[in-house]
């Protein structure tokens, strides 16, 4: 009886402690994420200006109408989706290949793992500037080498040519983020059971068959999670396009579009509507992806 009420008291004290320890974090998360998200949503139905956000009136869906009638918005959506699909696909295939390569037991793979971490860990701005210089039309090393090899006669304007700038941005993104893919897939590879490979080898299953019928299905969940992380990242891409080809409509992403309307045109209403649309777009893609992924898992019986 005594101990019962004492432990109940203890439990209550523990629950109080939990809320006390959580309070600062919850306060900060509310201030930095939940409240701003709600305010952005609210602003998207107003005619507020960035310079005087306190004076506004509600305008219903006018901002969304303006947004959806702007061809540049739809081009940004297309650019973003194109960039996301192509770059994430290349990164996944390349990441898987390099991960399998690094997974072989061979001297020097520790050094390789350290090396491939570097492009991922430096600022995207620096990577963009670095490639901008290498791709410079007059003095860049890429054009220099291509000229030496006799492939081109005059320097290619890689980031000024509207047909080339998106492929260039995708190529630089592949350089930056393939390491991330490699590391996540490597982590997945290290969790695969060794025993089945020995059994398969003894049974004389050829190496490529081991890959398609053992490695790939077992690795699928790890790859799926890595791809989800990359998708979320690619859909909100900002830095790379902004630095490498600022103001080019050919590579304008939805994030750049929304910030431009908000900050450069000071139009808080339409800017917030664009932000909200980006939020909904990413939420939708995530929801679809997670649903499909779960379906896959069930189908595979994992």
């Amino acid at each position: 009886m005594m101990s019962g009420s004492r432990s109940a008291g203890l439990r209550q004290a523990r629950v109080r402690t939990a809320w006390l320890f959580l309070a600062p974090s919850l306060l900060v998360l509310t201030g930095v994420a939940l409240w701003p998200l709600g305010r952005t949503f609210l602003f998207s139905f107003t005619d507020a200006l960035l310079t005087e956000p306190d004076f506004y009136s509600y305008v219903g869906f006018d901002n969304y109408r303006a947004l959806f009638e702007d061809p540049l918005w739809w081009q940004s959506v297309r650019n973003t989706l194109y960039f996301t699909v192509i770059s994430v696909s290349i990164e996944t295939v390349l990441g898987l290949t390099i991960a399998l390569l690094l997974n072989s037991h061979i001297a020097g793979r520790g050094v390789m793992r350290a090396i491939i971490l570097i492009p991922w860990s430096i600022p995207v701005v620096v990577s963009a500037r670095m490639w901008q210089w290498m791709l410079h039309d007059q003095f860049g090393i890429v054009n220099h080498v291509l000229k030496l090899a006799g492939l081109i006669e005059t320097g290619v304007a890689w980031t000024a040519n509207s047909a080339l700038v998106m492929p260039v941005i995708i190529a630089v993104d592949v350089w930056i983020t393939t390491p991330f893919m490699v590391l996540l897939i490597l982590a997945g590879l290290s969790m695969l059971p060794r025993g089945i490979y020995e059994a398969a080898s003894i049974d004389g299953v050829p190496a490529w068959k081991q890959f398609t019928s053992l490695t790939l299905p077992l690795l699928a969940p790890s790859i799926a999670v890595a791809v989800l992380f990359r998708l979320l990242d690619a859909l909100r891409m900002f830095d790379l396009s902004y630095v490498l080809s600022s103001n080019s409509d050919d590579t304008k992403t939805v994030s750049i579009y929304a910030r431009e309307v908000l900050v450069n045109f000071q139009d808080m209403g339409v800017g917030s509507a664009a932000s909200t649309a980006v939020f909904l777009m990413i939420a939708l893609v995530t929801a679809i992806y997670v649903t499909v992924f779960r379906l896959n898992r069930r189908l595979m019986g994992v």
């Binding site: 930095v32 998200l37 979320l232 900002f238 929304a258």
Partner: peptide, 22 residues
Amino acid sequence: LVLAVSMFPQIALLSGLFEMIR
């Protein structure tokens, strides 16, 4: 909630955060 917040795209908060920071 923590997991959901970690997935918020930064741009979705920009105008609200601007107001909060001011």
